[in-house]
Simulated scan of single mutants.
Amino acid sequence: MDLITPEIGLLFWQTIVFLVLILLLAKFAWKPILGAVKEREDSINNALSSAEEARKEMQNLKADNEQLMKEARAERDAILREARELKEKVMADAAEEAQGKAGQIVSQAKESIELEKKAAMAQIKAQVASLSIEIAEKVVRTELSSKEKQHQMIDNMLGDVTLN
């Protein structure tokens, strides 16, 4: 018997053992191995779909965040614009009020000056009148110191009255 040349009986038994081994592997090993491979494939697919969903959600959050930033910037600009307008309005109102008060003070000062001017004029007139009376009194005393001058003055006055 030669070990290199196979015999038919040996080939028959090797084939039967191989078929039994394949049946045993198919029954006990292939199903769990294929199940594990299928389970691994499913978990990988689930992980990929979860990653894709997370990526989409991140894009949505990023877009929402950008929109919120745009709205916040627009609101900030609106608030700044309102603040500027309010500042300008307050400044204009204050300037107008100050100008009105200044005008009122000027008009009061003019009235006060006018009243003081009238009072001074009245005082000056009174002093002029009193000085005029004193001067006239002195002149009349000097002129009327003699009888002849008195008669002459009366005649002059009577002459003036008839002429008018």
Score class of each variant (00 low, 15 high):
residue 6 P to Y: 06
residue 6 P to C: 12
residue 7 E to L: 03
residue 8 I to M: 06
residue 10 L to D: 06
residue 11 L to R: 02
residue 12 F to W: 05
residue 13 W to R: 09
residue 13 W to F: 07
residue 15 T to W: 01
residue 15 T to V: 08
residue 16 I to K: 00
residue 20 V to Q: 00
residue 23 L to D: 02
residue 23 L to E: 04
residue 29 A to L: 14
residue 29 A to Y: 11
residue 35 G to K: 07
residue 35 G to I: 07
residue 42 D to V: 14
residue 43 S to P: 01
residue 46 N to C: 04
residue 47 A to Q: 11
residue 49 S to P: 00
residue 53 E to G: 10
residue 53 E to S: 09
residue 55 R to N: 09
residue 56 K to E: 12
residue 59 Q to P: 00
residue 62 K to M: 04
residue 65 N to K: 14
residue 65 N to Y: 12
residue 66 E to M: 05
residue 67 Q to T: 04
residue 68 L to N: 07
residue 69 M to G: 07
residue 72 A to T: 05
residue 72 A to Q: 09
residue 74 A to W: 07
residue 75 E to L: 08
residue 76 R to S: 07
residue 76 R to N: 03
residue 77 D to R: 08
residue 80 L to V: 05
residue 81 R to P: 01
residue 82 E to L: 14
residue 83 A to S: 13
residue 83 A to I: 04
residue 86 L to P: 02
residue 88 E to N: 15
residue 90 V to H: 06
residue 91 M to C: 06
residue 93 D to M: 12
residue 95 A to E: 11
residue 96 E to H: 11
residue 96 E to R: 10
residue 96 E to G: 14
residue 98 A to M: 08
residue 99 Q to G: 03
residue 100 G to T: 12
residue 102 A to G: 02
residue 105 I to R: 14
residue 108 Q to C: 05
residue 108 Q to T: 13
residue 109 A to W: 03
residue 113 I to T: 08
residue 113 I to C: 06
residue 114 E to P: 07
residue 114 E to S: 15
residue 114 E to G: 10
residue 115 L to V: 10
residue 116 E to R: 09
residue 116 E to K: 13
residue 118 K to I: 09
residue 119 A to Y: 02
residue 119 A to N: 11
residue 121 M to Y: 08
residue 121 M to R: 12
residue 122 A to M: 07
residue 125 K to E: 15
residue 126 A to E: 14
residue 127 Q to F: 01
residue 127 Q to R: 14
